[in-house]
Amino acid sequence: MNDLKDLLELALTDRPGLDPAQHVDPAGDLARGRGLLRRRRLVGVAGAATAVVVVALVPWAIHASGGGPAVGAHASSTVRSAPRPGSASSTEPASNPPATPVHSIALIAYQGQQPPGYQVAEVPSGWVVQGGNAYALVLAPQDDKDTSIDSFIGKLVVMLQSQGVGAPTVGTSQPVAGRPGRFDVQGNTQILTYQGADGRWVVIQAPTSLGWDSTRLAQFAAGVQVLGNAQPGQG
């Protein structure tokens, strides 16, 4: 029998695309890697947010069901100390869910440098364009210590819908500048997916700490311009 390595080499000789000397373009693998990284971060944010909500709700649930007094008392005072928007009284019944932030950060005109791929007309007050590239635009609070544009946690992110993913089906309808869009909340992350002026679907991920509702998020989205060199993730 011939040397096994020679035989295995022979098994590859007439297969297409296996020439060791061929030029390799890493763009496709790069895009798939970025897409996977982005999806994992989104899942991570949603998972962390779910954990926070569960931790917050457990004592509240124990109190509501007449459980342990010490934990229940703490939960009760927590709920009362954070009034709900539009509520006249701070003594909400304990059966209501935990309060959402009342402070809503205003939008102000943006006059700084525009990153490649996207242009923004307005940004949240006190926030800056942290950076961006053809795949994502990242905004964060001015004093945010996490300056990596690969990290989306607690940031406002604009990106194109990944290739192969069609129109969104989850969430509530929220048009943006007259074009179709849907708004969804996953944990402490709001996601607005809408059709841009050029027909491509745009995804905006915003933290609930902004205190925005879907209308305010749509207002921000209306000021976002997706340029021709913006690229969607793949996979």
Binding site: R32, G33, L37
Partner: peptide
Amino acid sequence: LARLYVAW
């Protein structure tokens, strides 16, 4: 390669 990018 996609997983390798994440773990890079």
